[in-house]
Computed example of a mutant assay.
Amino acid sequence: MTARANPAPPLRGRRRGANATRQAILDAARARFAADGFTATTIRRVAADAGVDASLVMQYFQSKNELFAAVMSVPVSALGHFSAAFEGTDEGLGARVVRAFLDVFETDARSSAPLMAMLRGAIVNEQANEQLREFLQERLLVGARATRAVDEEAVLRVGIVSSMLVGLVMGRNIVGVPALTAAERETLVTLVGPAVQNVLAPPGRSQPREAS
């Protein structure tokens, strides 16, 4: 059975400074994400473990995604790649999503190192596997929800695309499939983009907008 993170005792004596509080939240979140995975971890649980109010956690980190990014040393700026891919019409959506994925894993040095470490860990560590899978799928869902209505089928489609793209990055950067490692990035976007497009926005399927 996986060990659970234990809540910190109530704060006593002199109050911690901002840096110490932020670090306490990060330490608690790291333990909680490792124990429970991304989905089951909540801001309230992290706050309880760190011995602070949930509102204070939200002052330092605007969302669970940003907290996870900070724990895994993924810069918040990298999260915008996924959301930006869904801006605009469905035309070219597949290519934009593939390009964003490769940008985050291969081009942005600050985000690629921790993400690749997560990917390598996912091969042998179920918790890392779960965290990576849930985090990437959630990022795509956040991007989709920002501009589109997301129903149960859309969630499934995002999950399929997440699996496809993780497989592409793993084959290219971990396994080292010769054809993938030798291919130019834009060549992969051109070849894989239509497949992702067909899953996310197949011909004839409407994509209603969220009500404003």
Rank of each mutant, 00 (worst) to 15 (best):
A3W: 01
R4K: 03
R4P: 00
R4V: 01
A5C: 08
A5S: 13
P7M: 02
A8V: 05
A8R: 13
P10T: 10
P10E: 07
G13S: 09
R14V: 09
R15M: 10
A18Q: 10
A18Y: 06
R22T: 05
R22P: 07
I25E: 06
L26I: 14
L26F: 10
D27P: 04
D27T: 15
A29Y: 05
A31I: 02
F33R: 01
A35G: 05
A35D: 12
G37Q: 06
G37E: 10
T39E: 13
T39V: 12
T41M: 08
T42R: 08
R44P: 01
R45P: 00
R45E: 13
V46I: 13
A47D: 08
A50K: 08
Q59E: 09
Y60E: 07
Y60A: 01
S63C: 00
N65T: 11
L67P: 04
L67F: 00
S73P: 00
S73T: 09
P75M: 10
V76A: 13
A78S: 15
L79K: 09
H81C: 03
F82E: 02
F82T: 07
T89V: 10
A95K: 12
V97Y: 04
V98F: 04
R99S: 13
F101Q: 11
F101H: 12
L102Y: 05
L102H: 07
D103E: 14
D108T: 04
A109T: 14
R110Q: 14
S111C: 09
S112F: 06
P114A: 05
L115A: 08
M116W: 04
L119A: 08
R120I: 03
R120G: 03
A122R: 13
I123Q: 14
V124D: 14
Q127T: 14
N129T: 00
E130M: 12
Q131N: 14
L132H: 06
L132I: 04
E134C: 07
L136A: 12
L136S: 12
Q137R: 14
Q137D: 10
G143I: 04
R145Y: 00
A146T: 09
A146S: 13
A146C: 00
T147H: 15
A149G: 11
A149F: 12
A149Q: 15
A149P: 00
V150M: 09
D151L: 04
D151M: 01
D151F: 06
E152S: 13
E153D: 13
E153H: 09
E153G: 11
A154N: 02
A154S: 05
V155N: 02
L156G: 02
V158H: 13
G159N: 03
G159T: 09
I160L: 13
L165M: 11
L165F: 09
L165Q: 10
V166A: 10
G167Q: 12
M170E: 14
G171Y: 05
N173W: 02
I174T: 11
V175D: 11
V177I: 15
A179P: 03
T181A: 15
T181H: 06
A183Q: 01
R185S: 12
E186P: 02
T187H: 03
L188V: 08
T190C: 07
T190N: 12
T190D: 15
L191I: 05
L191F: 06
A195L: 15
N198E: 11
V199H: 11
V199E: 09
L200R: 07
A201Q: 08
A201S: 15
P202F: 03
P202K: 04
G204Y: 09
R205F: 07
S206A: 15
Q207P: 00
R209G: 08
E210L: 14
A211H: 11
